[in-house]
C-alpha cells in the first residue's frame, strides 16, 4: 500500500447557469477589476492509501460518482498525487 492524495475537482457542466459565479463576477467588476468570465469549482483533497495510483484514482472516481458530484449538473476530474 502507498499513500496518495486524490484531488477531485467538481464543476458545473458547460452551459449550466451559475448564479453565484455571475454574482461574484459582478462584485469583482464593481471593484473595478477587468475580467471576461468566472467559473466556480469545488476541490476535494482526499488522503487515502491504495495499492497503486490507479487504484487510488478508481476509488476517488467512485466517490465522485456516488456523492461528490451530481451527474445531472456536474463534471468532475481526478488527479492523484503521492503523499509522503
Amino acid at each position: 500500500m502507498a499513500a496518495f492524495t486524490a484531488i477531485v475537482t467538481v464543476r458545473l457542466k458547460s452551459g449550466v447557469l451559475d448564479p453565484e459565479a455571475a454574482t461574484t463576477q459582478r462584485a469583482l467588476e464593481r471593484l473595478e477589476f477587468e475580467l471576461d468570465d468566472l467559473r466556480f469549482a469545488d476541490r476535494y483533497e482526499i488522503d487515502l492509501d491504495a495499492a497503486d495510483a490507479d487504484a487510488a484514482a478508481e476509488r476517488a472516481e467512485s466517490m465522485a460518482e456516488r456523492l461528490l458530484a451530481n451527474p445531472t449538473i456536474h463534471d468532475y476530474d481526478v488527479e492523484i498525487e503521492d503523499r509522503t
Binding site: 449550466v16 447557469l17 451559475d18 448564479p19 453565484e20 455571475a22 454574482t23 451530481n70 445531472t72 449538473i73
Partner: peptide, 11 residues
C-alpha cells in the same frame, strides 16, 4: 425523480 434542484437564478 429525474433532474436536480440547484441555485436560484437570482442567487
Amino acid at each position: 425523480v429525474d433532474g436536480a434542484f440547484t441555485v436560484n437564478e437570482s442567487a
